[in-house]
Design a protein around this nucleic acid. Sequence first.
RNA 1: GGGCACAUAGCUCAAUUGGUUAGAGCGUCGCAUUCACAUUGCGAAGGUUCCCUGUUCGAGUCAGGGUGUGCCCACCA
Length: 734
Amino acid sequence: MSIELPKTYNPEEAENKIYKLWEESGFFSPEGLPSVTLAKEGKIPEPKPFTILMPPINENGSLHAGHALVLTIEDIMIRYKRMRGHQTLWLPGLDHAGFETQVVYEKQLEKEGRSRFQMEPGQLYDEILNFTLANKKDIEGQIKKMGASCDWTREKFTLDPDIVQTVYQTFKKMADDNFVYRGEKIVNWCPKHQTTLSDLETTDVEQKDNFYYLQYGPFVIATARPETKFGDKYVVMHPGDKRYRGYKDGQKIELEWINGPITATIVKDEAVDMTFGTGVMTITPWHDAVDFDIAERHKLEREQIIDFRGKLLPIAGEFAGMPISKARPLIVEKLKSKGLLVKIDEDYKHVVKKCYKCESIIEPQVREQWFLKMKQLAEPAIKAIENGEIKFIPEHYKKISLHWLKNILDWPISRQIVWGIPIPAWHHEPKCVPRPGKEKEIKKCLKTVIALEEPRCEFCEAKFIRDPDTFDTWFSSGQWPFASLGYPDSNDYKTFFPTDVMETGGDIIFFWVARMIMLSLYVTGEVPFKTVYLHGLVLDAKGRKMSKSKGNVINPLNLLEKYGTDALRMGLVIGNTPGTSLALAEDKIKGQKHFANKLWNIARYVLMNISGISTLKPEIKAELTAEDEKIVSELGALVKDATEDMDQFRFYLAAEKIYHYVWHTFADKIIEESKTKLASEDVIIKASAQRMLLEVLITSLKLLHPFMPFVTEEIYSNLAIKNKRLLIVEKWPD
RNA sequence: GGGCACAUAGCUCAAUUGGUUAGAGCGUCGCAUUCACAUUGCGAAGGUUCCCUGUUCGAGUCAGGGUGUGCCCACCA
């Protein structure tokens, strides 16, 4: 066999061809695997399943470096386990990514001079749906470019009807179990996006502002936000503060305030820090979480000062209708002219919450929202983690998860956006229309009902209005592990759940990982996965976070084209320890392109020199010279070592060791030394060298295949070996 | 205020959980090249493993303290 291979490896040509070959082979699906077929014929024992669910990928853009890393690591695991004979399932998922996608689409609308607030919700939904569908093919194509050997026949989308059904059933079950409540509580409100956000969806930003000391009757109070103070009629101090001993809880005082005289009430509460400011504060329960709690404790009234667009309401008098930024200096001016401004501290550092998407300042607002009680949901998760039912890689994420779960707060799950799963709830019209003879019972009318169809009230003919809100995306994606596998009746659920490994970014451990654990335990009674592998961020070459504004975003698709998928994958995995951020330097990937070519030329050399040898006999070792046998057994040591690393999720080490062996042992030593052996007059020495070279090549290809699937498969396809299968399903060496 | 990490060659990172002389990639410098590969080979320079104290036969690794950096959580008006 003397096949002429070109002098350099051409990734682009090989990759498209090879991926098609794999797809057509059926080996991406568990039922198509040789190990499963052989087991069916009774020839080998039933293989063990090995399952990974791909974290659903946003359909609102194109693949970024983080996605490339996820796909690489997961593909390495799946390919390794597939070669070990497992019944492997890697289920691909696409994400509607609720709020994220709506934000992206709103930006596009903005560019076109349109706004979601001038659109019918139905129309907006349809447009976003079309937008994501248009992106779907691109994203799928990009996932394939990465070489991902996932089962496309099982591809799931987070808005698939069966997923939505599962989410509804979970919500209903939670409502029945009294884990859901609808409450008027203070929430994080983004005035730009016009929706509630969970605490995780806000970021804290430290900034310097003016701190105003104001005369409030006999007291001096301090505030950074004078524009919220119009309705302040409670003045709060610590019950133990001796300076204010003369004032009693509930005492009324008359005083002159911004827009005229008011009556204020003294409140004593321990939440007040005596050492901060003057030790006295007035409260604005509608727009501040601490104040809200104080008002709840003392059953105080609350009033909205700022509307949901961030403009002042009529209570602000002459300032009504103004946005905060415009009103604040004018209000300060008025306070000053009335002699109520005591002093201004211009150097006041404090933390403000901002929307994590648009950086608008969050305006706390009181709104009726759906909440989940989290304490009871968290308990089984805490137990499971403490018992070691879930293994964290790296380990310190165990502590981080437990800390969060033990301090968990209730979760607001309703969002005022259209792009998502509608909340299956209905609200009674304000007015009751009693049915004949039921006039006396209308007090029993249900205000809110959780149901898929419009409910009918027994006592009343009033209509029910559909709740306009959608679920927080993470509420549905938290159910992904069992929902995507067809809980509760499907064979896939029975076979592949709980899954083996959840591999995702450490930055979404609370958003997603913790919630999957809680929701899976609640619905199925089982943990969703046995191992959590968390990778770090992919940073630029200088270790900075990639961002569009910095202009340092590395597009993996460009790297693919330039250096080939295998090179990108190696560049992403070598030196990347779990949990640690990875600085992605282009030179590193370039170096791996050289490696792919090195491997290619190793194969060329071997092929050129082994004519006549087309198969490896099992008793190969008997035919080797002692020297060659030593080479083969040394390779055996590498195999053992690398296998151990693979089993322990040390892919970065395995890849580096194999790389180093192939280049600096196989190419630099074994091949160099083989040149004299092949030139030998001694037939035994020559034949031994030939067999040894082929053996080392085949084993190297197998070891490299999970990392560099394309070039290895391409080379393997050029070897003439009897009973050869595609490398993707060949047996991992032992 | 609380929590979690990190600090090793010029740069980016390893060192498989305490074990020879701390390694690799990239970069730098020198030499070689009719060879499967210039996308090459051989070689060199480059280290107080942040600092201090301790445990140990033995510490980059463990403990205590310090310095610096990053991230997460939290309701100081």
